[in-house]
Simulated scan of single mutants.
Amino acid sequence: MLARIVLAATLALTVTLAAVTGAAAQEPDLIFKKSTVWRALTPDDKLAVYGIDDPVVEGVACHYTTPERGGLSGTFGVAEEVSDISLSCRQVGPVTFKQKVGQGDVVFSERRSLIFKKMQIVRGCDAKRNTLVYMVYSDRPIEGSPKNSTSTVPLMPWGTAMPPRCGEWVK
């Protein structure tokens, strides 16, 4: 009995912390949605395209496409979303680093199920090619997820401004 109470309290704390920390993170910009599965009485399954700006590297934006479940479970926010997420990142202005970056730093994170799954976009630097590398993946604490997508952003001159060397900004 005590084990069940502890488990329930732990789950409640996890959900609360996820809600609090998720609120502080940047919200992605919804670009558009496209229905993929028609459902008669509940919302359709959709593909949704979102845009985010790298919070540490100005001048880089990423777009990702993710499936969103409809139906009753999707309506109530309890559907576990699949891990098929595509990613594309580009230089959209002169690149400047706000601070040092680590290899594999999280750029954006979002829950994909009530508790156990989240999608993350992480960043690294290929110093030899002066290219930022972004990867999106979803993870589960128990079994993980092999599905992922990668996008690269070669740092190029913008107008008269020469690009920084990403290797000089890695921790």
Rank of each mutant, 00 (worst) to 15 (best):
M1G: 14
L2E: 13
L2R: 14
R4C: 04
R4D: 11
I5K: 06
A8Y: 10
L11N: 05
L11E: 10
L11G: 04
L13Q: 00
L13G: 02
V15G: 06
L17R: 10
V20Y: 07
G22R: 07
G22C: 01
A23W: 14
K33M: 02
K34D: 07
K34S: 10
S35M: 00
T36D: 01
T42M: 12
D44I: 02
K46V: 14
A48P: 08
V49P: 01
V49Y: 01
I52F: 05
V56Q: 06
E58W: 04
V60F: 09
C62R: 01
H63Q: 10
Y64L: 02
T65F: 00
T66V: 15
T66F: 01
E68Y: 10
R69Q: 10
L72R: 08
S73I: 03
G74I: 03
G74T: 03
V78I: 15
E80I: 02
E80M: 10
E81P: 00
D84G: 04
I85Q: 02
L87K: 04
R90N: 13
Q91G: 10
G93D: 15
G93V: 05
V101W: 04
Q103N: 12
V106C: 05
F108K: 00
F108R: 00
E110T: 08
E110K: 10
R112S: 13
S113C: 01
F116E: 13
Q120I: 04
D126Y: 07
A127Q: 14
N130Y: 12
L132D: 03
V133P: 00
M135G: 01
M135I: 10
V136Q: 01
R140D: 15
I142Q: 10
S145M: 03
K147D: 14
S149A: 13
V153K: 02
P154F: 08
P154R: 11
L155W: 08
M156P: 00
M156S: 09
G159C: 11
P164A: 12
C166V: 06
G167A: 09
E168V: 00
